[in-house]
Amino acid sequence: MPDKKLRAIELLAQRNITVKAIAEELQVSRTTIYAWLKDAEFKAKLEEMNRLRDAYLKQELKDKAEDYIRALEKLGNNSKNDMVKLRALENLLMHSGWNQTQEVTVKTDESESKNAMIQLLKQKENKE
């Protein structure tokens, strides 16, 4: 496969560049790029590149997941803003497999902010 086609595949797989910009960089017309996109071999190489990119990104996310979870825990435990705490803890629960229809017993003190958060959660559940 010619170098220009291979470079076009690399650029298309980035998904943040237009066909016009690729055509300009490669000094070909947009029509040429669209013609390549119809070519079976070109399409197969592009799909392969996309699969490789997706696998790389998934692995990168997996590698960082523990750090993200710790950051959410820190927000949930240390934030001075109750809504930030609520959203952080909601995200942790959601991604841990907790189902919002599960019954949960919550012990609260009589503070207004905690009771307000519980009311917000109940309202959200009722809307869904």
Rank of each mutant, 00 (worst) to 15 (best):
M1G: 13
D3G: 02
K4R: 11
K4E: 06
L6D: 11
R7G: 05
R7D: 11
A8V: 07
E10D: 14
E10C: 00
E10W: 04
L12G: 03
L12I: 12
R15I: 04
N16K: 10
I17N: 03
V19K: 08
K20R: 15
A21W: 01
E24Y: 00
L26H: 00
L26D: 03
L26Y: 00
Q27G: 13
S29E: 09
S29Q: 07
S29G: 02
T31F: 09
T32K: 01
I33F: 02
Y34K: 05
A35V: 07
W36T: 10
W36I: 01
L37E: 15
D39H: 04
A40G: 08
E41G: 08
E41R: 09
K43W: 00
K43G: 13
K43V: 12
A44M: 14
E47D: 14
E48R: 02
M49H: 08
N50S: 06
N50T: 11
R53C: 13
D54S: 08
A55I: 04
A55T: 06
Y56S: 15
Q59Y: 09
L61C: 03
L61N: 12
L61Q: 14
D63S: 13
K64Y: 06
K64C: 05
E66F: 00
Y68F: 15
Y68H: 06
I69N: 12
I69V: 11
A71V: 09
L72S: 07
K74Y: 06
K74V: 09
N77R: 09
N77V: 03
N78M: 07
S79G: 08
K80I: 14
N81D: 15
N81I: 12
D82E: 10
M83T: 07
M83A: 15
V84C: 02
V84S: 10
R87K: 08
E90G: 00
N91H: 08
L92H: 06
L93K: 02
M94N: 06
M94A: 11
H95I: 13
G97I: 02
N99M: 04
Q100C: 00
Q102A: 05
Q102V: 06
V104F: 05
T105R: 01
T105W: 02
V106D: 06
D109N: 10
S111G: 05
S113Y: 01
S113F: 10
K114L: 12
K114P: 01
K114M: 14
N115R: 04
M117T: 06
Q119C: 14
Q119K: 11
K122T: 10
Q123L: 15
Q123H: 15
K124T: 13
K124S: 14
K124D: 11
E125F: 00
E125D: 07
N126Q: 11
E128G: 10
